[in-house]
Write a protein that binds this DNA or RNA. Structure first.
Lengths: 345, 345
DNA sequence: CTGAAAGCGCTTACAG
DNA sequence: CTGAAAGCGCTTACAG
């Protein structure tokens, strides 16, 4: 592979001059520039990003640690993050925590070792020592979707509280009183926010949320399956189950189907996070939608602001309820717009 | 951030000794080792991977360029790739080509600039000059899922031909004769393989595949929508539509639903690639499943073999038909096993 | 077993 | 406008 020395030799200039034309430095004669560019072309020279990074102490790379790649919500988030980053001249390296704190730490560590310019993260837990150290060390960072309380890092997220209230109002209006939730890990902000909002909203209608109706999940499908089975085993099962993310909703559907039960006749189901498939499930699933792409893009801009020395601020956008048919809504009450919800492309 | 010099100073040894203990070099006295390790701990020292890479000319990093992150098939592939790579001591950087050749080239270029040790790629096209150059330059590479004909690079993929034949036999047995396909780009191997196999299988039953029944898609949802609308506009629409991937199947469902039509009563649907949601769609979708996780792991092992100087070979595994209810199969003919198909974890 | 020194491929003051 | 030289943070022959 040709190096900068080969280019310099071929162009009959010093490596300094080659470097200058490559970096668009103004003081280079037109003639030198032409010769260098020609040499670069014929040699197929590409600067070694590793060497450049070592020298400049910047990698033009963002680290993104997401909770679970298998979750379409995060996958869409990752896509919008990469897109916006590319626009701003950055690459992104994705780490998949798989909802496991140790794996999250592994990726954060690797990313830090690689000297990424900044870190975008949706924490899987309440903040490991490693994460806290990184913040303290001044690593440019912004939280997306989930955040760590008490840490001074901008957070870009959707506030689901109002939408959860809307959901409860919707269910109450449909006549349901026995409402249960498959919650996410209490150590995550989205995990606790969604149960809290649910409980609060129920309280407004004078409905309690008994422990038996609060299943502890981990945002992955298996836990949704397990918790739903427990609900179904109850002497008095809930009328509607609210899954705090789409993967646990998948698990719930599996469990319901395995018993030969039907949604919503036998039991209703609603989910946090809306995905394209929810329009086509049997029945279409009532869900809370987040402006995912917008979150990703906003988070990247905030992080790049931090990196480039501009002030970055937290941003909260609202989530919204998309009522469909999985909670016993009257037939045809809600027409899905066409084309069905999908990511922008 | 503490550097190796700080550690050396704190431990009262030279940087060479620090480096040796960090790299497990045998000739270091137990005493020196202890002091170095202590200094590393108290300083919270972490080696700079950028500097190390520049010096050793290896990054312990694999590049993975996939066709579309929004496609659950690739998302699962990416996950298994990262998992296996991590086991073998490598990180992976994912590039999302979004089915666009220029974007694919952008990522390949970026990855090469970063001096990744090897490239895993599912090519979006027939092979750009850049890709061909990379192969010629000896970049360790392996193709996953899709490949570039005529290029001497190991390929790890599923052979879908037999499963497509099974699908056609299945549809024929169900009494269907007017069969259409939403094909992928002809420039991709999976795009052409799937139509070819479909056409061949139809021929065995004396069924032609007219142009009007061959829709050209691009593996993304929108194209599935568009092609399906065209099919539906035909004087004699097909009885069953076979989508060459799951995203185009999503698009097909959107289009069918938008016209107020039902699957399978009005039109049947089958898809290549099986995803967890297909069990819960209305109706459950008959699909061809690939051993995705296995493909990812096998591809990584092949690439690492190449990188570490061992011979790597191509691997082809079979895909298989999973018949459900979207093609007019008799009710309850196929029980879904419990738990429903999902990724290994 | 240990250290001084070279060198990986760049960028960038510093002189001229 | 241009080049010689230092230096980014490591690793690794080479001597001792």
């Amino acid at each position: 592979m040709a190096g900068i020395k080969d280019v310099a030799a071929a162009a009959g200039v010093s490596v300094a001059t080659v470097s200058r034309v490559l970096n668009g430095h103004p003081s280079v004669s037109a003639e030198a520039r032409t010769r260098v560019l020609a040499a670069v072309r014929t040699l197929g020279y590409r600067p070694n990003a590793v060497a450049r990074s070592l020298r400049t102490d910047q990698t033009r790379t963002l680290g993104l640690v997401i909770s679970d790649v298998l979750n379409p919500y995060f996958t869409e988030l990752a896509r919008s993050v990469e897109e916006e980053a590319r626009t701003l001249g950055y690459s992104v390296i994705i780490g998949n925590a798989d909802e496991r704190p140790e794996l999250q730490d592994h990726h954060v560590r690797t990313l830090l070792d690689r000297r990424i310019d900044g870190l975008l993260i949706s924490p899987t837990d309440g903040g490991s020592p490693l994460m806290l150290d990184a913040v303290r060390a001044g690593t440019p960072m912004v939280f997306v979707d989930r955040w760590i309380p008490g840490v001074d890092v901008p957070v870009v997220r959707a506030d689901g509280r109002a939408a959860v209230h809307d959901l409860v109002a919707h269910l109450h209006g449909l006549g349901h009183r026995r409402l249960a939730i498959i919650a996410g890990p209490a150590a995550t902000t989205t995990g606790s926010e969604r149960v809290d909002a649910f409980r609060e909203a129920l309280a407004e209608y004078g409905i309690p949320l008994p422990d038996a109706y609060t299943g502890q999940g981990d945002f992955k499908a298996d836990s949704g399956r397990r918790v739903t089975e427990d609900f179904l085993d109850l002497a008095e099962p809930p009328e509607v189950v609210f899954a705090a993310d789409n993967l646990m909703a998948l698990g719930a559907l599996d469990a319901i189907r395995a018993r030969g039960l039907r949604v919503p006749e036998d039991i209703g189901l609603a989910a946090f996070d809306d995905i394209a498939w929810f329009v086509h499930t049997d029945p279409p699933i009532t869900a809370i939608a987040q402006p995912t792409g917008e979150l990703g893009r906003t988070a990247v801009r905030a992080l790049v602001d931090r990196i480039e020395g501009r002030p970055a601020r937290s941003v909260t956008v609202p989530a919204r309820l998309v009522a469909r048919r999985s909670c016993g809504e009257p037939a045809h009450a809600h027409r899905e717009p066409y084309p069905a919800r999908r990511s922008r492309s």
